[in-house]
Nucleic acid binder design. Structure first.
Length: 634
RNA sequence: GCCGCCGUGGCUUAGUGGUAUAGCGGCUGACUUGUAAUCAGCAGGUCGGGGGUUCAAAUCCCCCCGGCGGCUCCA
């Protein structure tokens, strides 16, 4: 009898991770007897009748009152208890404060008050064990199917906020560069296949797929990134080549932010769960948080907003400094996304993104900045290797914002000169009034947001951020949230998926040259050509080149260079050595059947590669130069 | 989180009740190569983990972990 009871208590504690909820463990017992032995420092004052009780045919309700529990929770809990009591035909109820059900307890005064309230409001015979005493107890659980139940009663506050969001009704349109707003059911998608896919994805939510996305196979085969079973799902392992690509993208994107005028900062990755301002966020999105319950309860950030807003709160800001931009490359942002949503590099639980915030004087300035960042996002994605044909634009806003700023919205649409998906809400349910996203559409017709900018009209207030205007008055700024590229990992996903889409069109899959781990592979025809290969390597300064010195046939080395997606494959033998040239297979101009081969001077090859990578970050080869010395990672 | 499918050497995989198959990769040797896999030999497996059924489990049952897909969700 004791084992099942304690098992159920332990399971219960392990099972529930929810925050801000009252926790109940209900045991229908033949008999329950307790005795208050000794006071703890939280002990309530009680008369003798409460010190010892023995009850029969009783529903014992072990209760932990949690932080933020309120009247709404109490009502729901009472209803729950009454329902169970009726179901099991219990004659009486015993409320038994049991702190061990939770690691997030309410203040003792609050807990006692709420327990008393429950005692008063339960209509049947009800008893209450004293709060804050060390008690011995002896329970005889009946052991029928309903005799042991555990319940978590969630706060009504939280559910109200979530319910409101769920009620947000979306109106969908397509807006053309000519400024014509059409309801989606009336729009002719004939020439806009990708936009159709995106719209279907957003609205009809039909997402039938029976395949592993292609980028997952690529990221593993190319030895870029892999799953790490020993970690939490969605936390990846990066091999040297994957780390290189990620580093280069990170550098490129942060450079773009800085040359746009942003100040790079760094803020903590973890924050206190008790912090007044941050708490409200947590209440709204309790399940998506990585939390750590040590001596101090902490949670891991999901973006750099917290750190930057807390920093801005402490700053002295005048109108002269605005618009003011701050950026952090978040390594990492943590979001405990639901298990079933994590796929390869598409959605992770730990990811890196440029998170830039712009403090603007007013809505007018915010809109100006919004347009600049919209255009910059186009450039940045282009630079990364994701052209505008690969993604579709969504603009989401309140109806009010649209009605007041039609020309402005039209001007955004004309930037890329193609129709965009519009989502409108009658009321503002989120912290922003306007946002755009660029959504990559993959080979399985799934859409993923890359770049995004939002106009935030709520957080200046929440974080008490203000600036002093020309007349010396304190004013609330409007804040822009911007992620120029979206998550870096997601850019890698998009590049790999794009390579796969190109392959389906008959091209050889490839990464942009500046991101290719090996840019030039030098293959000596036989062992005696290795010294010349080394000479060529020496001349290719500032290029990631390596030498396949393995004891393999030429055919095999060529094949493997191809399977590594290497953009320039150089073969050197007697002829090249004699003439001081190289024979290069240019991947971007080849197909599997017909390879484009050119014989050029080494300097000319160097010029070709340099032209490809101009203006992009460079890092050296992440692996040994000689292939014979390389490990295999999988 | 819920539902479904999956998990065999580093990788891909055969094997549905009698302790396991092959290829690639690795190591050794031969060959010294001219544009997408040279030949031979050798080594390598607690069949994701735990429990159960059975004389006997990779195979059947239960639980857990991990992967994929769907639902839901994405500050």
């Amino acid at each position: 009898m004791w084992n099942p009871l304690w098992n159920s208590i332990v399971n219960f504690i392990l099972w529930y991770e929810h925050r801000n909820s009252m926790r109940l463990l209900l045991i229908h017992a033949d008999r329950m007897e307790y005795e208050a032995k000794k006071k703890t420092k939280f002990a309530e004052n009680i008369d003798d009748s409460m010190k010892h009780k023995a009850l029969e045919e009783v529903l014992v309700v072990f209760i932990a009152v949690e932080e933020n529990d309120d009247q709404g929770v109490i009502e729901k809990a009472i209803q729950e208890i009454i329902d169970v009591a009726r179901q099991v035909s219990a004659e009486r109820i015993l409320l038994y404060p049991y702190a061990h059900l939770s690691s997030n307890l309410a203040h003792p005064d609050v807990a006692v008050a709420l327990l008393k309230k429950m005692e008063e409001e339960i209509p049947t015979e009800v008893h209450r064990a004293p709060f804050g005493w060390y008690k011995s107890f002896n329970i005889a659980c009946k052991g029928h199917p309903l005799s042991e139940l555990s319940k978590t009663i969630k706060t009504s506050m939280e559910s109200k906020a979530l319910q409101a969001e769920k009620k947000a009704v979306s109106h969908w349109y397509i807006l053309t560069p000519e400024g014509i707003l059409t309801r989606i059911e009336d729009f002719d998608f004939k020439d806009f296949e990708n936009l159709k896919k995106f719209t279907d994805y957003e609205i009809s939510k039909s997402r039938k797929v029976d395949r592993v996305p292609p980028h997952v196979e690529s990221m593993q085969k190319l030895e870029l990134v892999d799953y790490e079973e020993a970690s939490d799902p969605g936390n990846m392992r990066y091999y040297p080549k994957g780390r290189l690509i990620k580093s280069l993208l990170e550098q490129y994107v942060i450079d773009a932010c800085i040359s746009h005028g942003a100040m790079e900062v760094e803020t903590p990755i973890m924050y206190s769960q008790e912090h007044e301002t941050l708490k409200r966020y947590l209440d709204r999105f309790p399940a998506r948080q990585y939390t750590m319950d040590g001596k101090r309860k902490l949670f891991l950030r999901f973006a750099a907003c917290f750190g930057q807003f807390l920093m801005t709160h402490d700053m002295i800001l005048t109108y002269r400094a605005l618009p003011l931009k701050m950026v952090e490359l978040t390594k990492y942002s943590f979001r405990k996304e639901q298990r079933g949503e994590l796929v390869g590099l598409r959605r992770l639980r730990a990811f890196t993104m440029p998170d830039m915030h712009t403090i603007c004087k007013d809505m007018k300035d915010a809109m100006e900045e919004f347009t600049k960042q919209y255009k910059l996002s186009v450039e940045v994605l282009e630079g990364i290797g994701i052209p505008s044909e690969s993604y579709e634009v969504a603009i989401r806003m309140t109806r009010e914002f649209y009605e007041e700023n039609k020309d402005f919205i039209n001007s955004l649409v004309s930037v890329l000169n193609k129709p965009v998906l519009i989502e409108m809400w009658d009321d503002r349910f989120f912290y922003f009034v306007l946002k755009f996203e660029f959504n990559f559409i993959d080979s399985l017709n799934k859409a993923s947001a890359l770049s995004t900018v939002q106009i935030d009209v709520e957080n200046a207030e929440r974080y008490d951020i203000s600036y002093v205007d020309e007349s010396g008055e304190h004013k609330r700024p409007v804040i822009l949230h911007c992620s120029l590229s979206g998550a870096i990992e997601r850019c890698m996903y998009a590049l790999l998926e794009k390579a796969h889409l190109d392959k389906e069109k008959g091209h050889l899959p490839q990464l942009p040259v500046w991101l290719s781990p090996t840019q030039v592979r030098i293959i000596p025809v036989s062992e005696r050509h290795i010294p010349y290969a080394e000479q060529v390597l020496e001349m290719l300064k500032g290029v990631r080149a390596d030498i396949d010195d393995r004891n393999e046939t030429l055919g095999k080395k060529i094949r493997e260079a191809g399977m590594e997606w290497i953009p320039y494959v150089v073969v050197v033998g007697d002829e090249e050595e004699r003439d001081g040239t190289v024979t290069v297979t240019v991947r971007s101009e080849s197909t599997l059947k017909h390879q484009k081969k050119i014989t050029v001077a080494v300097e000319d090859l160097l010029k070709m590669v340099k032209r490809d990578i101009e203006g992009k970050p460079y890092r050296p080869l992440p692996l040994p130069v000689y292939l014979s010395k390389r490990p295999k990672f999988r």
